[in-house]
């Protein structure tokens, strides 16, 4: 609070008001704004799940149940085998391609945690009808996604009990931002100002690709 001296004054006045009731610091906020969140309200919105399984609801779902749901609710965009329809994202395939020119970043190829699939399906899918699946259905769809990514067998049942036993292939493929170490050469160099290169060649041009929207193109004309 030292950064807001005037604020500290206001708060101390407000605290005097609530101190008259003899409340402990943890029971009442210093400023009488907002209200306590009710357990039902927290349960309605706090649906996030972590890699260690914290946040999982009770329930379960099998690969077979998930297949049926996937074909009904997901395949129109993601393809019957998770390969992606049109420009909609693939959710399977691409294993072992992370160093290729066109790396596959679908679940089995790239995603680190099962919880990420479960949480995302639970909060955001199906696209346009979010949060319409029951917990059992989210378990089932997640199980099916694991199956089509060759992570589990076709008899697998996903539940809070089996959840943390499943590991995704690329779980160890991530590390913390290290730009300040590995790219430190970009700092504290004296940039060249004069005669920095002998010649400059044009290596490629956007015009050759010609993928810019038509109405944005500017024609040349000079006076």
């Amino acid at each position: 609070m030292s950064r807001f001296p005037r604020l500290a004054l206001i708060i101390s006045v407000l605290v005097l008001g609530s101190a008259a009731h003899g409340d402990s610091a943890s029971a009442e906020p210093a400023i009488a704004l907002g209200r306590a969140a009710l357990p039902e309200e927290i349960a309605a919105w706090d649906i996030d799940v972590r890699p260690d399984g914290v946040g999982l609801p009770s329930g379960k779902g099998s690969v077979k149940q998930g297949e049926e749901l996937f074909l009904q609710q997901c395949a129109a965009c993601h393809g019957e085998f998770g390969e992606g329809a049109g420009r909609w994202p693939a959710v399977a395939g691409g294993r072992g391609s992370l160093t290729d020119d066109n790396p596959g970043k679908a679940i089995g190829a790239y995603w680190p945690y099962v919880s990420t699939i479960f949480d995302y399906v639970r909060r955001s899918m199906p696209f346009g009808n979010a949060q319409s699946l029951t917990s059992d259905e989210v378990y089932a769809v997640t199980a099916f996604l694991l199956f089509i990514n060759d992570v589990v067998g076709d008899d697998f049942v996903l539940s809070p009990e089996t959840f943390t036993s499943v590991r995704l292939p690329n779980a160890n493929g991530f590390y913390e931002d290290d730009r300040e170490i590995t790219e430190r050469a970009l700092w504290n160099r004296e940039p060249c100002m004069i005669n920095c290169k002998s010649e400059v060649m044009i290596l490629n041009r956007a015009r050759v690709l010609d993928v810019t929207p038509e109405d944005a193109k500017g024609a040349g004309s000079v006076d």
């Binding site: 996030d48 799940v49 972590r50 890699p51 260690d52 992370l98 160093t99 790396p103 970043k105 679940i107 790239y110 995603w111 680190p112 945690y113 919880s115 990420t116 949480d119 995302y120 955001s124 493929g173 991530f174 590390y175 913390e176 931002d177 290290d178 730009r179 970009l186």
Partner: peptide
């Protein structure tokens, strides 16, 4: 702990040439 949700794992992680990816690359250079 961080939650490792979709937008910080499958997206917004920076895949480098060796096939590994930087995560939590929050700052804009």
């Amino acid at each position: 702990q961080p939650w490792h949700h979709r937008e910080e794992t499958s997206k917004y992680t920076d895949l480098l040439a060796d096939g590994r990816a930087r995560r939590f690359t929050w700052i804009m250079d």
